[in-house]
Design a protein around this nucleic acid. Structure first.
Lengths: 216, 216
DNA sequence: CCGCATCCCCAAAGATACTG
DNA sequence: CAGTATCTTTGGGGATGCGG
């Protein structure tokens, strides 16, 4: 565990709890997928050494963010899950994700979007009970439904609206509120209302093209 | 600069930009105090080596979060300031600060609250135009005024309300919405309205007492 | 196989000194 | 003042081992 910043400051203290490398990505996984086993976490977090993951899980547990639990006998295995307190990082990661998305840009060519990404993306983009409406998304190969704040895989029976397009169009919709790149059947106002729950960027319209995306 | 997480994910990308040690604290300082010189940053960030600070500033500059600028001739010196994009980290740090505050707990005994902390605390707690009202805070030795979203040092002439108490009471007010530990003169509803702009914690009532606060 | 602990190597962090 | 240069220490990254 790294040294504490040792300042009486909410931000510094929060970073003492979840500011280390990989910590917030562990939280992200647990937020998106619920309780996970050690190995599931390990394979999802590519590049994170097994010792590091173990260390981070210990730290997060000590910090009251994550909790270990034994699954009931049928398939007894230990899983990691967020505590109540850890769950409240959702709005933080929500904000952070929207901030990051603006300079990340849309997926270049269906990058390595893993199967099931849409469900996680919706959960991250629209936390909690963003809307009462039932909206179905058909994005690329993926289909998911946002129903009264809950996200389900697969389509809906009586959706208020159906949003269709590719991943880049979905990106533009969520990040730039650009309606023109997706096709919307059904209640357009329902979709508009949903997007109005997103964090309103105070000013600056477009991403600053931060890096040449020089991957390691 | 640390290795990129190298994932197509808004959170991972955001952490590539500001996830390294000290980075978000640099942003915090610039958010609270506006443009700062290198030395000012260095002395405010106790424990951050000069080489590290230089490195972080380079990274943040490359990431489009921070910008260098030469002050006009009278007192020509170079300062660091947030870009438009960097400024939009305010809601992120706002969320993170409120999350962290819940497990940080109130200042034990007027800890090392540096002079002027109240201004920064108000700016961090109530970002942007939280309220139209003008509310004066007299907390411990400090006095500051929140006026239509702007924070000024010193009191107001015609405040809608005056909030008075010690630092711990201020903490309880902002984190727990506990009105009983401070005294409020003037428009109580104005204060209540202000607190209603804070992030509503979904459930869990109280902090989980995460650590024995074993400082390094 | 799952859940780590150990080992090794190297890249950052931390501290100090020094320079344009 | 605004950093760079240098040195030591610590932690990350990758592989492997090992008990349950």
């Amino acid at each position: 565990m790294a040294k504490s910043y040792d300042q009486y400051c909410p931000v510094a203290h929060a970073l003492d709890l979840v500011g280390e490398r990989w910590s917030l990505l562990v939280v992200r996984e647990l937020l998106e997928h619920g309780p996970l086993r050690y190995s599931d976490l390990h394979c999802r977090l590519d590049g994170c050494g097994t010792n590091i993951l173990a260390s981070r899980l210990r730290d997060l547990e000590r910090g009251g963010v994550v909790r270990r639990r034994q699954l009931p006998p049928p398939a007894a295995s230990t899983v990691y899950e967020l505590t109540e307190y850890g769950n409240e990082l959702r709005p933080v990661l929500h904000q952070l994700a929207h901030w990051g998305a603006r300079s990340l840009g849309p997926p270049s060519s269906e990058d390595e979007l893993q199967p099931g990404w849409l469900v996680g993306a919706l959960r991250m983009a629209f936390p909690a009970q963003a809307t009462e409406a039932c909206i179905e998304f058909r994005i690329g190969e993926e289909t998911a439904t946002l129903d009264a704040g809950d996200v389900r895989e697969e389509g809906a029976e009586q959706p208020d609206a159906v949003v269709e397009g590719d991943a880049a169009a979905f990106f533009r919709l969520v990040v730039d509120r650009d309606f023109d790149t997706v096709s919307i059947r059904g209640s357009k106002p329902a979709v508009r209302a949903l997007l109005d729950t997103l964090p309103p960027w105070t000013a600056a319209p477009l991403p600053p093209v931060p890096e040449p995306v020089a991957a390691s």
